[in-house]
């Protein structure tokens, strides 16, 4: 069936609006941070900044609604599930990342994550809408199976959550670096200024330092960030495991073998093993904390290779390794 061009256009317009609204939400979270600092510096109550943060959440929810509508109209336009190519896939992964963030918000105070989650989401959607964009169209027959729905939904869900955990991990590394620096600085007398910078500092370097210190103050303790990223990975990892298994079942129906070490399968496996190593590291003396965090970032890097490098370079014309 030919794609419904009218609906496809509506989906594209909704997509553009989604990116715009998310960008506004991101600025809202950043403004909350800025006003909170200002209020603290002046010794005022942070009521205004809290209202800003709440507005940013409301804007995020609005963007989320637009995002869902964009995905749904895309599926209706193409008469199939809306995750059949890299553009649609990237849009879905961002949708999951925002969903995971909103779901976390309903349970714990994680609004501080707002700007840090929305920034990569906006960037990612921007890339998806420009570089990866393809018009709505049908699927290859081999992709036409209900296992693709199960497999891809699981893979997308895990990836969106891994993305959030990646963001939290980066924040963790930042915070733990600052904590260590603060600890080493505050050994000497008169060094409280490094941690307790109240006055707007003079000059570019002073500003940068004030900014970093402000962010450090804004973030919760590194221990909490570490736990948060573990929680998200603890959700994503079993889903990723299930995605690989569902993919193997699909491969069994489609290609007569459940596993063939093709580059896509292999990078999914590598990603899985690296996150398994992360989980082990958290239970291994001497590997907790920062080393485990590096493993988690490595896992996210492998995931990105799996999606983008494998699809575009390895199975493309320039390499010999592809199955094609």
């Amino acid at each position: 069936m030919a794609p419904n061009l009218h609906l496809a256009h509506i989906s594209d317009v909704l997509f553009t609006w989604t990116v715009f609204v998310y960008a506004v939400a991101m600025l809202g979270y950043a403004a909350e941070f800025a006003f909170a600092r200002l209020a603290r510096a002046r010794g005022e109550s942070p009521a205004r900044s809290i209202r800003l943060g709440q507005a940013a959440v409301a804007i995020t929810v609005a963007g989320w609604g637009l995002h869902i509508s964009s995905v749904v109209t895309r599926g209706l336009a193409a008469h199939r599930v809306p995750w059949g190519n890299m553009y649609e896939f990237s849009s879905m992964v961002s949708l999951v990342a925002v969903t995971v963030f909103l779901a976390m918000l309903t349970r714990q105070q994680v609004r501080f994550l707002g700007a840090f989650v929305m920034a990569p989401v906006v960037l990612y959607l921007g890339l998806a809408g420009t570089v990866l964009y393809v018009p709505a169209g049908p699927l290859q027959p081999v992709l036409n199976s209900y296992w693709i729905k199960i497999h891809v939904v699981a893979a997308i869900t895990a990836s969106g959550a891994f993305m959030v955990s990646g963001v939290v991990t980066v924040l963790y590394l930042m915070k733990s670096w600052l904590e260590r620096r603060a600890a080493s600085v505050s050994i000497g007398p008169g060094t409280a200024a490094a941690v307790e910078l109240r006055e707007p500092a003079v000059g570019v370097r002073g500003n940068a330092r004030a900014m970093v210190d402000g962010v450090a103050r804004w973030l919760p303790s590194s221990e909490r960030l570490d736990r948060l990223s573990y929680q998200v990975i603890g959700f994503a990892f079993p889903v990723w495991t299930f995605a690989i298994i569902a993919g193997a079942i699909w491969a069994k129906y489609a290609w007569s073998r459940y596993w063939g070490w093709d580059p896509k399968e292999t990078w999914s496996f590598i990603t899985w093993v690296v996150y398994a190593a992360y989980l082990h590291a958290r239970a291994t003396a001497g590997w907790r904390g920062r080393r485990a965090a590096y493993l988690s970032l490595l896992g996210f890097g492998c995931l990105m290779v799996d999606y983008y490098v494998v699809n575009t370079v390895i199975t493309g014309l320039h390499s010999y390794a592809g199955v094609g």
């Binding site: 580059p263 590598i270 093993v273 494998v310 390895i314 390499s319």
Partner: peptide, 20 residues
């Protein structure tokens, strides 16, 4: 585990007899 992940990488960069 880390070694296993690392060892699988060349299998995706070089052509493999079992695949092609």
């Amino acid at each position: 585990l880390a070694l296993l992940a690392l060892a699988a990488v060349p299998g995706t960069l070089l052509p493999q007899r079992g695949l092609n």
